[in-house]
């Protein structure tokens, strides 16, 4: 009788959450702004994590270098408008094109390497881009960063709405893909690549397709991130910690699940609050706390929060 209870509860939570996110900006005050700022951070990483989840969670392409697409998107926009005076849309197009090139290369590599080796290659590709961004100073202005004048930036509130929209789009896209032929193929590839190939699935092609979608999402996110920050420096975007955050959020939430990245966002909130609470008085304590909570999560929820919620609802129904 309670078999489907989890579903309505889940829907209610989502609707409530969207409601809160929509109404929060209607009550402007400094503390609302703080919460919106916190939510913006969360939305940014939930969006990126969802993009990572498409390739990493669904298709098992365990990338440690997704920040490469983020950086390409951010730099395409920043360098495009600031150095070459291109219209923003053209910059996004360039970012998407370059990310697509990298995604195809990475996809081709994934047909030859898997697991740890694939992860290491993606890490290496990101490292190459990080170094190029800081060494090709004629293009990027190196570590001083590419500065964006006010007309090329968006305000905090605009950024809030942009990432709100991107998040909704990402979840819809994930839900659609998850239940489409592409999603089924990806899961098949993840579960048993050799078998998928044996029954005639062109695994290389589908891996590239899912990577392209994932890369495009991250690249767009990078472009808007640049707009919002108003400056792009190599370590802000091509950073290992950004790649890691994408996968941490996904894994804590539940790999390959539609709402995993949303559940995993708890961790970002926790990180933010710990730093706020302890950061200034004891330098290292926030790191220790964050690390501890990560280890605890892994020990008790090795397959993610979503995995825990599901059996619980099944227990309730029996």
């Amino acid at each position: 009788m309670h078999r489907n209870l989890a579903r309505p509860v889940g829907i209610a939570i989502i609707v409530g959450l969207i409601g809160v996110l929509l109404t929060l900006p209607l009550f402007p005050s400094p503390s609302t702004t703080y919460f919106m700022g916190l939510i913006l951070q969360v939305m940014l990483f939930v969006y990126l994590a969802q993009a990572w989840n498409l390739a990493g969670g669904l298709a098992g392409l365990f990338s440690l270098g997704h920040s490469a697409y983020f950086g390409i998107g951010a730099y395409a926009y920043a360098v495009g408008v600031a150095k070459y005076g291109l219209p923003p849309l053209a910059c996004f197009a360039i970012g998407l094109f370059l990310s697509a090139v990298l995604a195809v290369i990475t996809g081709l590599i994934s047909t030859r390497l898997s697991g740890m080796f694939f992860a290491m290659v993606t890490l290496g590709l990101n490292e190459i881009l990080l170094n190029l961004a800081s060494q090709l100073t004629w293009l990027t202005k190196g570590d001083a960063g590419t500065y964006l004048r006010k007309q090329f930036t968006i305000s905090f509130t605009t950024a809030y709405w942009v990432f709100f929209g991107l998040c909704i789009a990402a979840f819809v896209l994930m839900a659609l893909i998850r239940h489409s032929k592409l999603g089924t193929l990806c899961v098949a590839i993840k579960e048993n690549e050799a078998f998928s190939r044996a029954i005639g699935v062109n695994t290389g092609l589908w891996k590239i397709v899912i990577l392209l979608i994932s890369a495009a999402m991250v690249s767009i996110g990078g472009g808007f991130f640049a707009m919002y920050q108003g400056i792009v420096a190599p370590t802000m975007v091509f950073s290992f910690s950004i790649s890691i955050k994408m996968l941490i959020v996904t894994m804590i939430g539940g790999m390959g699940t539609v709402f995993g990245p949303l559940a995993g966002a708890v961790l970002i909130v926790f990180d933010e609050l710990v730093r706020a609470w302890l950061g200034s008085s004891f330098g290292g304590v926030s790191l220790v706390a964050y690390g501890t909570i990560l280890v605890i999560c892994v020990l008790f929820l090795p397959k993610g929060i979503m995995e825990r919620l599901r059996p619980a609802s099944r227990e309730a129904s029996s």
Binding site: G283, G284, G291, V295, V298
Partner: peptide, 18 residues
């Protein structure tokens, strides 16, 4: 990956603290 990253953060934090 997750647990070793977590442990690394703890180690980094302890280095800064002590």
């Amino acid at each position: 990956i997750l647990s070793t990253i977590g442990i690394a953060m703890i180690v980094d934090g302890l280095i800064i603290l002590f």
